[in-house]
């Protein structure tokens, strides 16, 4: 069997430190961070400055972790840690979207070295502007998920009982569908879209949770569905089984807040961290909607 070093105090996995191609000149330096905070929904927002020691290979998440650990602003005042969302830390879960130096992106893949090159001296963090702020950098992206319901982004199978394999699919079709299927619902495309505007519904005095939810859903449903949902509709309309309810998806895409709201700014595709060909999806959905609408005109 394998013989191991009698002395294994070299440290377990990951204990040894990292650091890959960073500039040594930064060592010992401080990173200044400006965070736009807000204590709760509808509250006033305010800027707060933080300073954290520079470490090689840092990303915005580790900066926020240091801020939480210090719990002090740059001026030494004791402050509550900044609230934010994250989970996977490898840009697949879609949690950590925020405005970093004014641009929507994933905090976990926003590397400090690169941010400082982009904008020396300071990193600026703001919450997404198209969704209601819950607190600090944490926003409520419920509308984004609601849009997936609107376009029925699923394959309508009979159920989970065994019916053998799914349909045969050519490698070309798979390669076409796969990128669309990597959408992690991060909302970058919506944040950057000039046609996607914020909808914030506030619970009224005496309104029950259910009533409030119904009213909010209705408000969301009048708003733009967004590039991500259009792309999901295209994904499922391309799937042999998903296609069976293609009409329902096109109906959704051509109702209020549907594809017609898109103004072809193409920001969505430029900011999507997953490089999803969103404008291709939008154009495909546009074509399908055209054909469908004309057909409906004559078939009715």
């Amino acid at each position: 069997m394998i013989q191991l070093a009698e002395d294994s105090n070299v440290g377990g996995p990951g204990a040894a430190d990292q650091g890959n191609g960073h500039s040594d000149t930064m060592a010992g330096r401080t990173i200044h961070v400006r965070v736009l905070r807000q204590d709760g929904p509808g509250g006033e927002s305010y800027w707060e400055r933080h300073a954290v020691p520079y470490e090689p290979n840092m990303n915005v998440i580790s900066v926020l972790q240091r801020i939480a650990e210090r719990a002090r602003a740059e001026d030494g005042r004791q402050v509550a840690p900044v609230a934010w969302d994250c989970s996977c830390l490898e840009e697949v879960c879609g949690s950590c979207t925020m405005l970093v130096n004014g641009r929507t992106r994933m905090a976990c893949s926003a590397l400090v070295d690169r941010l400082l090159e982009e904008h020396p001296g300071e990193i600026e963090l703001r919450p997404m502007s198209k969704f209601p702020v819950v607190r600090d950098l944490k926003v409520d992206r419920g509308r984004l998920f609601r849009a997936l319901e609107r376009v029925e982004a699923w394959v309508p199978v009979d159920g989970s009982y065994d019916h053998g394999p799914g349909p045969r699919i050519s490698p070309e079709e798979q390669e076409d569908a796969y990128p669309l299927s990597t959408c992690m619902s991060c909302g970058c495309c919506l944040e950057a879209c000039p046609q996607y505007t914020k909808i914030e519904v506030v619970q009224r005095e005496g309104e029950s949770a259910e009533e409030f939810e119904r009213r909010r859903t209705a408000a969301y449903d009048r708003g733009f569905v967004g590039a991500h949902a259009i792309s999901q509709a295209v994904l499922f309309n391309g799937h042999p089984t998903g296609r069976m309810i293609a009409d329902e998806r096109l109906q959704a895409l051509t109702s209020a807040g549907g594809i017609q709201v898109c103004g072809n700014a193409q920001n969505c595709v430029a900011v999507c961290p997953k490089h999803i060909p969103l404008t291709r999806s939008i154009a495909r959905a546009g074509r399908a909607a055209t054909v469908w609408a004309i057909k409906r005109l004559f078939d009715r």
Partner: peptide, 22 residues
């Protein structure tokens, strides 16, 4: 095998062989 078949039916874009199998 049943589970993979099920996930296949649910639309998981499994990589394909030239003939269209998983």
């Amino acid at each position: 095998p049943r589970i993979i078949d099920l996930m296949d039916r649910l639309g998981v874009p499994f990589n394909r062989t030239p003939e269209g199998f998983r």
